[in-house]
Design a protein around this nucleic acid. Structure first.
Length: 749
RNA sequence: GAGCUUGUAGCUCAGUUGGUUAGAGCGCUUCGUUGACAUCGAAGAGGUCAGAGGUUCGAGUCCUCUCAAGCUCACCA
């Protein structure tokens, strides 16, 4: 006999084992083949696939992960029960910068840093660390009830995956889509790597605007410390105040002695800002770099005065070695002492680019990097959007996607970190004597210098083995190849942007899985993920998917919103308002957690949840349980009275059919939150409060009620798989149902 | 500055091509417990659907404007 209350804890892990024992999640299993065989042909001939957004392999899940598991599992279980050839391919992500960042924190605690190790050693250390912890995410996803096919599981650094990713790069290079250029990049000195524009956050700040004397001019700048990198001055071409200076060289008194700057005219200068004069510092400001590109003929070569550690270089004279902030303070003091500082507006507001990862200021720095030409890729996706080959569900995000595709700039894919897929780029040692190389020698010393010089003391093998970093000049010759073209080469030390590999995820997971999976499941049906990675991931998957296969990687994009706390605030560790999905699962059950997240949620909109919501859905599980308990008790006494007609039978049956159709329609239209809400209300207030009560008065036939319960269990199953299966197994025991496992049973009609 | 989204009960949110007395959870009021469930049931209070105009036989739903909130992008050194 069933307990009086449903205790999720006592059932969930057993139920999950039952599903695995029947191989319910594998489309090739016997039970699913049987399911398809008895389903309508129109369904059985369709395939339905979802590629799981791979969570960070070694991180515990947050509530957003629980949201995607809930939504995707609903779609998958629904499709499977409909009889479609259904697969949900799970995976985990190496999460390049995120993971390396965490690992470096651990190193720091031991008094070490990434600079203590050569590249390969560091990679291996992180690999071991991730391997030790990589089961976390997978185990938790299972705990949430995900009906993913674990026999098709992939990790982003699996050998076959890496091979395909590299092949894509090589193909792109052949197609002329890859190039190397020395441009300003968004560099985070703290993280030690460049980022794409997308990974830079902008923060409002109040700062000082310094008015500095430059020969006959006064000009305003927020960054006086960059003045050692000035290679020119600019004014607006039609600015009457400065006409006579255009094209002239002026003499400027500086802190490291006097120097000369040429005055150029360029439209980008706003005459109304400051004094209408701008200093040109091409290597440390994006606008200035662009101006220099336009006026190359008139201006000298730029000077780099900030290095990749965020300190001033030798070119800054006596300020060399100072960090940017300290240099700014010192420079402004010295300017003042010399009478070169005219005034300081200390209440100036502007936006500062900061690292999305660590929050420190992004430093625009010149660095040769590999870029992907995106124009052709984005155009191809826009065409697919025009032809409605992809549909985006999520409050206006389709427009945002379009906007991004229309304005996207070339993609910097080089990252100066170790934890990732290394670029298959090889520099011939003998042809790149000017390449800057850092390596750990046999005596464990960190050695830096030009390759040509280092070769006088060290063997190529020693350099290659201890290699930390190679920074080849922008015009360096290189070979792109999966394998080492020979002993005389050094491999590029940069790794791919994590998104370069994950943008290929739908394709690489299928091509490297069971034979025929690509043809069988591509294009996938739905990509379901949070809207905040629309442009990082979804947009790039579309670009790469169309590039690789000519087809969109998925037909539908369902974007869920962020989960917020009861007060609508974003969850964050510092606020202490984070909902840990595993705690909720322990306390109320995974079904309750899933249902609370999903019910009345809508695509693209945020949702706030609190303890009360989870409790309410725990109560729903119990309601299902107890309604079943009543019917089980009742059925025994009244079985076989099916012939007996009761007054409300017809109404009951009609409503049951209508409800089934409604839920089916909702789910087909991705109206998941509405479907859940409807089910909740109809089950609780109509089926329990009304129909069960009526059956007690013999107004509804008991067998009909049992049929109704079965339908409800099926309709509820995608949402709350554990409790519905637990009840179903009781029905199996009582020989009241034929289908052995609810997870692989047929969807009602 | 540009774009997008949102504004419905005390709180958090549903309400899918416009169609009868606008819904749920939590909270609140009153009542109810000899077995399906107190993780419950019955009854109830509470909304001029942000505001104004328009289209329509009919608008929470469509259009225009205003106000408010949020997000994203771009920014003047």
């Amino acid at each position: 006999m069933l307990d009086k209350q449903y205790q999720a804890k006592n059932y969930e892990s057993e139920i999950y084992k039952l599903w695995l024992a029947h191989d319910c999640f594998n489309p090739d299993s016997q039970i699913n083949q049987e399911l398809r065989a008895k389903s309508p042909k129109i369904q059985a001939n369709k395939s339905f696939s979802i590629i799981m957004p791979p969570p960070n392999a070694n991180d515990p899940l947050h509530v957003g992960h629980a949201m995607f598991v809930a939504l995707e599992d609903i779609l998958i279980r629904f499709a499977r029960m409909q009889g479609k050839d259904t697969v949900w391919i799970p995976g985990t992500d190496h999460a390049g910068i995120e993971t390396q960042f965490v690992f470096e924190k651990k190193l720091k605690k031991k008094g070490q840093s990434r600079f203590n190790f050569d590249r390969e050693t560091l990679f291996q250390m992180i690999w071991n660390y991730v391997s030790e912890n990589s089961a976390i995410a997978v185990e938790q996803i299972k705990k949430l009830g995900a009906s993913a096919d674990w026999s098709r599981y992939k990790f982003t650094l699996d050998q076959d995956i890496v091979k395909t990713v590299l092949e894509t790069f090589i193909q792109m290079n052949k197609d002329g889509l890859v190039y190397r250029a020395n441009r300003l990049v968004n560099f985070c000195p703290k993280c030690g790597t460049a980022f794409s524009n997308l990974e830079v956050d902008h923060q409002e700040q109040v700062t000082s605007l310094y008015y500095i004397k430059y020969g006959p001019f006064v000009l305003a700048t927020t960054r006086p410390e960059t003045k050692f990198g000035d290679t020119g001055l600019a004014v607006h071409p039609s600015d009457q105040r400065y006409q006579q200076y255009i094209g002239q060289e002026i003499e400027v008194e500086g802190l490291n002695g006097n120097f000369k700057l040429k005055v150029i005219a360029d439209e980008f200068v706003d005459p109304k800002f400051g004094t209408g004069v701008v200093k040109i510092t091409p290597y440390h400001d994006f606008n200035d770099f662009a101006a220099w590109q336009r006026h190359k003929a008139e201006l000298p070569e730029p000077i780099q005065i900030i290095d990749f550690a965020g300190r001033l270089t030798q070119a800054a004279g006596k300020y060399a070695g100072l960090k940017v902030a300290a240099a700014r303070e010192q420079v402004s003091k010295d300017l003042e002492a010399r009478g070169l500082l005219v005034k300081v507006d200390t209440n100036y507001q502007n936006n500062l680019g900061v690292c999305y990862r660590c929050g420190s200021p992004i430093e625009p720095l010149p660095l040769p990097q590999f870029y992907i030409k995106v124009k052709g890729l984005t155009q191809a996706v826009l065409e697919k959007l025009d032809h409605k080959e992809v549909k985006v569900y999520g409050a206006g995000h389709n427009k945002i996607l379009r906007h991004w595709l229309e304005t996207l700039e070339d993609w910097n894919i080089s990252r100066q970190i170790v934890w990732g897929i290394r670029l298959p780029v090889w520099y011939k040692i003998s042809e790149n004597p000017d390449a800057l190389v850092t390596f750990i020698d046999k005596a464990k010393q960190r050695i830096s210098g030009k390759l040509g010089e280092l070769l006088k003391t060290y063997s190529p093998a020693e350099i290659s083995q201890g290699l930390q970093n190679i920074n080849a000049s922008v015009d360096a010759q290189y070979v792109i190849s999966q394998n080492n073209p020979g002993d005389a080469y050094l491999q590029e030390t940069d790794t791919f942007d994590t998104w370069f590999s994950s943008s290929q995820w739908p394709f690489v997971t299928l091509i490297n899985n069971k034979a025929g999976d690509l043809e069988r499941f591509y294009p996938t049906n739905t990509m379901e993920t949070a809207y905040d990675i629309l442009m990082f991931w979804v947009m790039r998957m579309l670009m790469m998917g169309v590039y690789q296969t000519g087809q969109v990687p998925f037909k539908n994009v369902y974007l869920h919103g962020l989960i917020r706390d009861a007060k609508k605030q974003k969850m964050s560790k510092s606020k202490g308002n984070v909902t840990n999905p595993m705690e909720i699962s322990e306390k109320y059950g995974s079904d309750a957690l899933r249902m609370a997240l999903v019910i009345r949620s809508s695509a693209g909109l945020d949702k706030s949840v609190s303890d009360g919501d989870f409790k309410a859905m725990r109560n729903l599980c119990n309601k299902l349980w107890n309604a079943s308990r009543f019917i089980l008790l009742n059925t025994k006494e009244h079985l076989g009275e099916k012939a007996k007609k009761c007054p409300n039978d017809q109404v009951f049956q009609t409503k049951m059919t209508q409800l089934t159709q409604e839920i089916t329609k909702n789910l087909n239209a991705f109206q998941i939150g509405v479907a859940a809400d409807t089910l909740y209300n109809e089950f609780w207030h109509w089926f329990c409060d009304q129909s069960i009560e009526e059956s007690k008065k013999d107004l509804i036939n008991s067998d009909l009620l049992l049929d109704g319960l079965q339908v409800f269990l099926k309709l509820f199953h995608p949402f709350m798989p554990f409790v519905t299966e637990a009840i179903w197994q009781e029905l199996v025991k009582e020989k009241l149902v034929e289908e052995k496992v609810l997870a692989s049973s047929t969807w009602p009609t």
